Computed example of a mutant assay.
Amino acid sequence: MEITQFQLDALREVGNIGSGHAATALSTLLQRRIEMSVPKVWAVPFEQVSIIVGQLDTPQATIYVKVEGEAPGKAVFFFPIESAEIVVQALFGMDEPLDLYTNEMAQSALKEVGNILVSSFLISLSQFSGIPLQPSVPALAVDMIGASLDAIFLEEGLLDDTVLFIDTQLSGIPKIKGQFIFLPDDGSLKKLLGAIGV
């Protein structure tokens, strides 16, 4: 599917609105002013997913939700381990990071933060397009990127050949970055872009 510059600009606006919603919700949750920017938006062929997310043997915290509605798909937020640890540390007001691999409290908190981030972008996409999208309960994996992606790709459903990436950077907490990915089911991205009017 060919994506024009005009369509990318529309998707970037979706990302900017979503990041605004996420920053507001995170500011309330973390009791501090959080700002969030979207430096880059890509729409790339499915086979290039692994190139964009980086080394597949790099551990990351991955929050995944299944998206239901008229344009279904899979929504994923990737946190570098360091960023995820800093977020959880800030949430609990602790001086030392918790072990994301074993600490259930840290995992639960990270799921909540990831749910806010993923839902904010989905709400923006839904509002912009007028197409209702409903996220499932989030799942969390703290594992190598390749293993997490394999598990997501094995979920039922035929994916579109184009994937939407939204890079994010948070200020208000140091060194926080992440990446939102929407893996649309076959035909969903075309439907969303058509509804947006581009």
Rank of each mutant, 00 (worst) to 15 (best):
M1P: 08
I131Y: 01
R33S: 05
V38C: 08
V88I: 07
Y64H: 13
G93S: 11
V14C: 01
R32A: 04
G194D: 14
K111W: 02
S119A: 14
S19K: 06
D150Y: 10
E112C: 08
E68H: 10
D185I: 02
F6S: 09
D95Y: 07
A22F: 00
G15M: 00
V76C: 00
L125E: 02
E2T: 09
E155K: 10
L11E: 01
D167P: 04
G54E: 06
P59R: 13
L193G: 06
W42A: 07
S19M: 11
K111T: 10
V88G: 00
I176L: 11
I17E: 02
A109C: 13
E82D: 12
T162H: 08
V67E: 12
E35P: 05
I34M: 01
A151W: 03
T102S: 15
V41S: 07
K191P: 07
I181G: 04
E156Y: 05
G69V: 04
L133K: 12
I173C: 06
K66W: 03
E155P: 05
G194T: 13
S27N: 08
G130H: 13
V44N: 08
A71E: 03
D57I: 03
L183A: 05
F78V: 05
Q89K: 15
L158F: 05
P39C: 06
I34V: 07
K190D: 14
V118Y: 01
R32Y: 02
N16R: 11
T62H: 05
L154E: 14
F180M: 09
A75V: 05
N103F: 12
S136I: 11
E70D: 12
I52A: 05
A75I: 03
A25K: 13
R32P: 04
F165S: 14
K190N: 13
L11N: 00
V113R: 06
F121Y: 15
V142Y: 10
I152P: 01
T62K: 02
P138W: 03
L193K: 00
Q134G: 09
S188P: 09
V41L: 04
K190V: 05
A23S: 14
E104H: 14
A43L: 14
F46L: 14
G73Q: 05
L133A: 03
S120N: 07
L98A: 14
V198C: 06
G187I: 04
P45R: 11
S188C: 07
S37V: 15
G146H: 14
T168A: 07
F153G: 08
R33G: 04
I81E: 07
A23Q: 02
L110Y: 03
N115D: 12
V41W: 00
L91Y: 00
V65N: 02
I196G: 03
L140H: 09
V76Y: 02
L56R: 08
T24H: 00
T28G: 10
H21G: 06
R12H: 14
P135C: 12
F6Q: 10
G73L: 05
D186F: 10
K190M: 07
T4Q: 09
T58A: 09
L100K: 12
D161W: 04
M1S: 10
F6P: 04
P138A: 07
A25T: 08
V137F: 01
V118M: 02
